[in-house]
Design a protein around this nucleic acid. Structure first.
Ligand SMILES: NC(=O)c1ccc[n+]([C@@H]2O[C@H](COP(=O)([O-])OP(=O)(O)OC[C@H]3O[C@@H](n4cnc5c(N)ncnc54)[C@H](O)[C@@H]3O)[C@@H](O)[C@H]2O)c1
Ligand SMILES: NC(=O)c1ccc[n+]([C@@H]2O[C@H](COP(=O)([O-])OP(=O)(O)OC[C@H]3O[C@@H](n4cnc5c(N)ncnc54)[C@H](O)[C@@H]3O)[C@@H](O)[C@H]2O)c1
Lengths: 208, 208
DNA sequence: ATTGATTTGTGAAAAATTTGTCAATATAGA
DNA sequence: TCTATATTGACAAATTTTTCACAAATCAAT
């Protein structure tokens, strides 16, 4: 089955969960895991785990289960986590700084190479190893394919355009402002305020 | 239609998007918006917007559209955004500090009342108005219903238990570690590393 | 080599969600 | 008051996603 595309987006969103489980199993020295084991760890049904994998090929051994190390390699490769990816952060504020300092990204192969801002007080300052650069001075056609938007909502659209001009093909947008869709650019939005609101909704439902 | 519960979770997840759009419309002085207008702003189909609302009641005027202010009130009330909610942050690290300083939560009625940590070097220090407290000293039965987990993955489960013991009923978990489900506790996970991985997956699909 | 115990991969069924359609209805203007 | 226009609310259809259930495959033991 070599049909990349038209893979259900919920399936894609579960791959990183499986990836994380496999890393844990590998660290624990587990060589083989059944779909039942994996599903329990991942918090899904075993049939769903198997169906998800089936979109990409056959990775298990019937009667036995899945060789952890091999499956990890395959999922790595499917998600491109076997390569390093350069990431640009736009916005050296509270969130941008937290993201920059986060070592977890490195472990998954995400390397933050630039941090951009438009505040003259920040430009030129160092955050860890990285010097904050003026977003206006950013060259076209960098080879970072991923950009993170950590600027205020009011600047999000414009900053998205700047990132795209510099060669970014995928955007993780924390601003809460919708980025108008551009051809061939993948955007994901993370809105923490929404998450809190969803919680309060369910709180009110729980209490009948 | 008074059936709270069994409302599709994608519907619930879109309510905050609609809420945000309505705030914007109200700020722009728009009194009435059609489902077409709303949907375009929210990035969904008009029929979906109408369907989503239909789970909660009838808020529109046929031939005219939706009175912005009234709909905003209703969605506020449905999502409980017409009340203030106290929030406890566990983990006064990079992310916890960013969240604490974020004024956007206040605007939606989320008030961060406590920040907890277990690091003696941090306990007692001030972050803005708030003094970091020892997570071990936290009283039972506080009236914060929401807790945010911003501690390392290895501590997430234990911290979740502590939060629950202190009366928290809903958890926003940033740790990337699954919290084992507890009765009547709502959990949402935000995993930024996963988001980046999903982006790289789609990048590879885009490029055929 | 045969048997028994497992567990995968998948086609089909079921469930959930999205989208299309249109009668009903409200408004504004004649 | 009547008519033309716009737009909702809901039902039905279409699509997507999850779950079921079992034949096929592998292994270990005899
Ligand atoms: N901090 C949080 O916990 C949090 C939570 C939810 C959402 N967010 C969202 O994340 C984004 C960043 O939040 P933050 O708390 O880091 O804000 P912040 O104000 O601390 O930082 C924003 C940074 O962006 C820079 N900036 C502004 N306009 C710019 C432009 N045009 N080009 C380049 N840089 C520009 C500012 O100089 C500042 O350094 C915001 O959109 C916010 O709504 C943050
Ligand atoms: N910083 C980011 O941008 C980012 C991105 C993705 C995920 N995360 C996740 O968010 C969480 C927090 O990240 P961070 O960067 O703020 O980490 P951090 O190390 O900066 O902060 C963690 C804080 O938790 C405290 N802590 C540790 N164990 C504790 C315990 N048992 N009880 C109370 N406090 C405890 C530490 O003292 C520290 O202050 C981590 O799970 C991380 O994986 C962070």
């Amino acid at each position: 089955m070599e049909k990349r595309s038209k893979i259900p987006e919920p399936t894609v969103a579960r791959l990183p969960i499986y990836f994380r489980c496999l890393i844990e199993l590998k660290e624990n020295g587990v060589a083989v895991a059944s779909s039942e084991d994996m599903a329990a760890r991942a918090g899904v049904k075993a049939s769903q785990f198997r169906k998800d994998l089936s979109y990409f090929g056959e990775f298990g051994i019937q009667g036995l289960g899945y060789p952890v190390s091999h499956l990890l390699d395959r999922i790595s490769s499917i998600m491109q986590l076997n390569k390093e990816h350069e990431v640009i952060i736009a916005g050296a504020g509270n969130l941008g700084s937290a993201l920059l300092n986060y070592p977890g990204f490195q472990k998954w192969g995400f390397k933050i190479t630039r941090v951009l801002d438009n505040n003259p007080q920040k430009i030129g300052k160092k955050l860890g190893d990285i010097t904050i650069e003026d977003i206006q001075d950013i060259p076209k056609n960098l080879n970072s394919s991923i950009g993170i938007i950590a600027v205020p909502a009011s600047a999000a659209q414009q900053v998205a355009q700047t990132l795209i001009q510099s060669g970014v093909k995928a955007i993780l947008n924390f601003s809460g402002k919708k980025i108008s869709p551009s051809k061939d650019i993948v955007v994901r939005n993370v809105d923490m305020t929404h998450e809190l609101a969803i919680l309060t909704y369910y709180l009110s439902v729980e209490n009948k």
